[in-house]
């Protein structure tokens, strides 16, 4: 997209005492994307997000939101941001509605009508006048989304939004985010340690490790870096015989037995040859499929196998 980035970080550094927690981060988030932060625990995802919303000070560098500096023009910059930082902690002794009234009062120009609108959007109409302490975690998450959307922000920042949600809740959240980016042109920034979730959710991912930016790429680019030699899995019986035959085929490497069958690395063009050889030898073939590398595999590869989450 050609528009100017909604959020941009310029040489952002955070030091606490002698420790450098965030080291020289520079990247842009374009409009209308779901942008993911990925990294092992302690990589600095939460710190970066807290600096973006002004909860933490920035030691060096600057963060711009729609061109406004979060440090020196805090009130103008934060106006464009809706956020949930970690769990959506609301006032439990207030009703969901009064929580929203509370946040609406803090931003000029939000009519009562808008509160009703966001409540409908997150489907909390029936329970909005109940006290938040009676809400389930999923309902709190939805109320969290509602408070973040109240003022029609340009950027939605969610820190670990799937924390503690059941699969249905995660799916619901994902659908919201897609709706918001596609229909309302909102930019979404999420951090998560659930890699499989990020894979389904994000358009682009930044990988952080030990406070440094390792890489920023589109999700597809992460998936298909090695187009030529792919990994395939063949489920065939008897295994020993099949192994011997597959090893003979030219252009095949890394043949090894795995629990589901035989794994091999080969050019896509070689696969028909492999299959016909197996059939000739009267081997029963149950399944042949390419093993797509998951984000998790790529991630481990990039960060050198450091344990995640």
């Amino acid at each position: 997209m050609s528009q100017e980035p909604v959020v941009s970080l310029r040489q952002v550094t955070k030091r606490v005492g002698r420790h450098t927690i965030i080291d020289n981060l520079t990247f842009d988030v374009p409009q209308g994307e779901i942008f993911g932060f990925l990294g092992p625990n302690g990589a600095g995802k939460t710190t970066t997000i807290r600096m973006m919303v002004g909860l933490m000070s920035i030691t060096n560098g600057e963060i711009l939101i729609k061109g406004k500096n979060i440090k020196s023009q805090f009130e103008q910059a934060i106006r464009h941001v809706g956020a949930i930082v970690e769990n959506p902690e609301m006032y439990k002794f207030l009703s969901g509605y009064h929580n929203l009234v509370h946040y609406a009062r803090m931003i000029p120009g939000i009519p009562k009508e808008r509160i009703r609108e966001v409540v409908e959007l997150v489907k909390l109409e029936d329970r909005i006048h109940d006290k938040v302490k009676k809400y389930s975690l999923g309902m709190r998450q939805r109320l969290g989304v509602a408070q973040a959307l109240l003022h029609r922000p340009s950027v939605l920042i969610l820190d670990e939004p799937t924390n503690g949600l059941d699969p249905a809740g995660i799916r619901e959240l994902r659908d919201y985010l897609h709706y918001l980016t596609r229909e309302e042109g909102i930019t979404v920034i999420v951090s998560s340690h659930l890699l499989s979730e990020m894979e389904l959710m994000c358009d682009r991912v930044a990988i952080l490790q030990k406070g440094r930016l390792v890489d920023v790429k589109r999700i597809q680019e992460f998936m298909n870096t090695d187009d030529k030699a792919q990994t395939f899995l063949i489920e065939a019986l008897p295994v020993e015989q099949a192994l011997a035959i597959v090893r003979e085929v030219e252009g095949v490497s890394g043949v090894k037995p795995v629990s589901e069958g035989i794994e091999l690395i080969a050019d896509r063009a070689v696969i028909p040859e492999v299959v016909s050889r197996l059939i000739e030898a009267n081997i029963a073939i149950y399944e042949v499929r390419s093993v797509r590398q998951s984000l998790e595999d790529r991630f481990l590869q990039i960060t050198g196998g450091e344990k995640i989450g």
Partner: peptide, 14 residues
């Protein structure tokens, strides 16, 4: 203690 400070301070109010 309840964490509500995080949602309180990310509004356009110094």
């Amino acid at each position: 203690a309840t964490g509500t400070i995080k949602l309180l301070l990310i509004r356009p109010a110094s």
